[in-house]
Design a binder for these strands. Structure first.
Length: 517
RNA sequence: GCGCCCGUAGCUCAGUUGGAUAGAGCAACGGACUUCUAAUCCGUGGGUCGGGAGUUCGACUCUCUCCGGGCGCGCCA
């Protein structure tokens, strides 16, 4: 990672400047918003101001002078102090060699956690997935791709709610249609119920298969599909009750058994065994989380829709109680805000119970997996998405997916048509547009790492756009066909490196990187 | 009533341990195609960061309060 490289480069000189009192964490590397402030900058003088009792600008000036006097810095970087910041401009050759080295090997990323389980989608198998499920799916999938890319130990899982009241209601609804009886008031009413009723196959099994197929059609494959029903067959529900009881987390009241979740910050205590003796969903879910912990995961990542955020405190209480007195397990819940579908500005209804809903599969059929994935991943999970189907279909500059893919197609075209020879590179005098492209490329691993450790995959989508933009700009400013041999080979080398980065980015996003469009 | 999320340019959004003159894209307007793919690029205009108060060298960022929008608050799943 380039920031790490710079931090390592600056640490020793600055530490000697400060006579050995430099804390590594203070040496923060930023990317200036304005290009004339250099490629990178550090605001370290602000941190040191109170310690040294000098104004930041003085400290920055002294440090920049000191750094520029050091041969090891001077060979790769020019430092200049401005407004208290130390701005750094890397030499073209250093930047180029760094970007080139990125293609040779990946850096060794830190561990996020010893072993991670990512649970996502986990929709009820009582009907088709909708666009919101699509969002959790892409979120989870890109997170998993990032975890794999950065060498983490992890697994992904879909929790199948194939037991309980809703399932019974679903079976009843299908059975009613088969018997030519009306579906109950609170039953499932969609057209798909009538389709399912024409088959002798188990409707739940068919819905699960359909969900798998839809996810696969958008490039989402989970490692494990965990059945809720299987929990009833194991002894783990009893084990969980015994475990909670032993630690006095349970309470019997009004004929029911309660879990004192208020001990762990919940608003009120929750029922686990109803007065009629049946189990609540929550109890079974605790058993599910018990198995996660038993399976040895040290971090549990769970993606929930915003319509379930009221459940967060309960889950946190559950994990805290189950690990009480043991080594802690980190629970990391990501809330994805809801998605509203629009067509030409008009909202499209998505009620599960009514017949007129648009399923995720319909959206994928209409606009394609690439566009669906990109539109669902490009914003922070915290923002509500208004997803306009007509916009996503447009093949124009309004549509970022095409902008990015077109960049890749252009790169491929250049490299095949202009006969790039990797050995011919010897010129390191880059123009502004070339340097700017190199700089953007150099940030790739840093973006990957931020997106991974913060569980913010949208940062990667934004980087994809930024990289495509840098490239299109370079493309306009730097002709290759008509350039001198030296210019052409230097630029093609840059195209070659950029293409590799962009292909990696698109692979991480699960969006195709077309060679021609 | 309580809890979580959001409010930044006409629109969609970045801005994450508080730091430079608040940034992009789209849309609008004006330009560039005998070309390596114009699905592109260049230029212009556009802001009381929802309102107010506080914390300090410094606040879009932290605290409080109010306003507006979304979603939750079952012995449902």
């Amino acid at each position: 990672m380039i920031k790490q490289v710079l931090r390592d480069l600056l640490y020793d000189p600055l530490n000697s400047f400060l006579k050995g009192s430099l804390d590594r964490d203070w040496l923060e590397i930023e990317i200036p918003k304005q290009v004339d402030h250099g490629h990178f900058a550090t605001p370290i003088s602000f941190r040191l101001a109170s310690l040294l009792k000098k104004p930041p600008s003085h400290i920055a000036n002294d440090m920049a002078d000191f750094l520029n006097s050091k041969d090891v810095i001077k060979s790769c970087c020019v430092c200049h102090a401005m407004n208290g910041f130390i701005n750094m401009t890397l030499t073209d050759e250093y930047l180029y060699q760094y970007v080139r080295s990125m293609g040779m090997r990946r850096p060794s990323f830190d561990r996020v956690s010893a072993s991670i389980l990512v649970e996502y989608v986990s929709a009820n198998p009582t009907g088709p997935l909708h666009i919101g499920h699509g969002r959790w799916a892409v979120l989870g999938d890109v997170i998993c791709r990032l975890l794999a890319f950065t060498g983490q130990s992890f697994s992904s899982e879909f929790y199948v709610n194939d037991a309980g009241n809703q399932i019974q209601l679903f079976y009843d609804s299908v059975a009613a249609v088969k018997d030519n009886k009306p579906i109950a008031e609170n039953g499932y009413q969609g057209d798909y119920i009538y389709d399912l009723a024409t088959s002798s196959e188990d409707p739940v099994g068919r819905v699960i298969q359909q969900q798998k197929d839809v996810l696969a059609s958008m490039g989402v494959c989970l490692d494990n599909w965990f059945s809720e029903k299987s929990l009833y067959q194991d002894a783990c529900i009893d084990e969980v009750l015994a475990l909670l009881d032993k630690q006095s987390f349970l309470e019997h009241n009004e004929g029911a058994t309660w879990f004192k979740t208020t001990l762990f910050g919940d608003d009120k205590d929750r029922v686990l065994i109803k007065s009629d003796g049946s189990y609540t969903y929550f109890l079974v879910d605790i058993a599910y989380h018990y198995t996660k912990i038993q399976r040895g995961y040290s971090q549990l990542v769970t993606i929930l829709g915003a319509d379930h955020h009221g459940y967060v405190k309960r889950l946190e209480a559950c994990v805290k109680a189950l690990t009480s007195g043991k080594s802690p397990v980190e629970l990391n819940i990501i809330i994805g805000q809801l998605v509203n579908l629009f067509r030409d500005g008009d909202p499209v209804r998505m009620s599960k119970r009514s017949g007129d809903m648009i399923a995720l599969s319909d959206v994928i059929d209409e606009i394609g997996s690439d566009a669906v994935r990109f539109f669902l991943i490009q914003n922070s999970a915290d923002t509500h998405i208004d997803f306009d189907l007509e916009l996503a279909k447009k093949q124009s500059s309004e549509n970022p997916v095409f902008y990015i893919q077109y960049a890749h197609a252009r790169m491929h075209s250049l490299l095949t048509k202009l006969d790039y020879n990797e050995e011919n590179q010897e010129d390191y005098e880059f123009t502004d547009a070339e340097t700017q492209l190199l700089h953007t490329c150099s940030l790739f691993y840093d973006v990957v790492w931020d997106a991974t450790r913060l569980y913010m995959p949208y940062k990667l989508a934004q980087y994809a756009y930024q990289l495509a933009r840098s490239f299109h700009l370079f493309y306009e400013a730097c002709p290759m066909k008509t350039a001198s041999d030296a210019d052409r080979q230097r630029r093609l080398a840059l195209v070659f490196s950029t293409k590799r980065v962009l292909a990696d980015v698109l692979e991480l996003l699960g969006v195709t990187a077309p060679d021609r469009m």
